[in-house]
């Protein structure tokens, strides 16, 4: 849950990038890190294996500016995507305000996408969250690859509920900031509704 500090006039929110192994969650954060002004970002931390696979999480703090006199800070986390790291994924989801589900557009990864999305639903539900209620956006990543599945097909499988969705290519940066903006916007809307 977001942390509102009236003393330092800050709002802190947590965004988690979720998705199957090698779908591009870390690449999303790396692109955001490389394109953000130094004064707006903190240090990016990657707890990864020797082969650069995420072991626990990546972390990137971002300060976006002020809203109603409060500094707005977003803490971006990724989860390890490989199936056997489920215990770690559950821990990282704790206290989440918004989720980006990064889907791998390659046809052969469609089952992995479905499995990971089901896993997200289960892990959110364990903490009392509903995927339809928590601020969640879907990113169809790797759209630039020749073996990318048709968008309609992916939508049918992964987004029947009509959540906000974006096409992306995290290696080139296409769609990365649009995705981040959408999830941040959703979180702030939730904050407004909770306060209303």
């Amino acid at each position: 849950m977001s942390f509102i500090n009236y003393s330092s006039r800050e709002i802190n929110c947590k965004i988690v990038y979720y998705g199957p192994g090698l779908c591009g969650k870390t690449t999303n954060l790396q692109h955001i890190y490389s394109k953000t002004n130094p004064e707006l970002k903190g240090k990016m931390i990657s707890l990864a294996t020797e082969t650069e696979r995420t072991l626990f999480f990546d972390f990137l703090p971002l300060a976006l500016g002020q809203i109603r006199g409060f500094k707005t800070r977003f803490h971006l986390y990724t989860v390890p995507g490989q199936v056997f790291y489920d215990a770690s994924r559950k821990l990282i989801l704790k206290g989440v305000d918004g989720v980006v589900f990064v889907a791998d557009s390659q046809v052969e990864r469609m089952e992995a996408n479905i499995e990971s999305l089901d896993n997200l639903r289960v892990n959110l539900a364990e903490q009392g969250y509903d995927i339809e209620k928590v601020s969640c956006v879907i990113q169809y990543n790797k759209r630039d690859l020749p073996n990318a599945a048709a968008l309609d097909e992916m939508r049918k499988l992964l987004n029947p509920g009509g959540l906000s969705e974006f096409e992306a290519s995290a290696t080139t940066g296409l769609g990365v900031f649009e995705t981040l903006k959408a999830v941040a916007r959703g979180i702030l809307h939730d904050l407004k509704q909770m306060s209303g």
Partner: peptide, 25 residues
């Protein structure tokens, strides 16, 4: 305050414009 709906907090008045401005920097 959650039970009371906490009306009157500064966030109840957040507008779409406020949110858009956050991303224009």
């Amino acid at each position: 305050s959650q039970a009371q709906g906490s009306a009157g907090t500064p966030f109840a008045e957040i507008t779409d414009e406020d949110i858009d401005n956050l991303f224009s920097v």
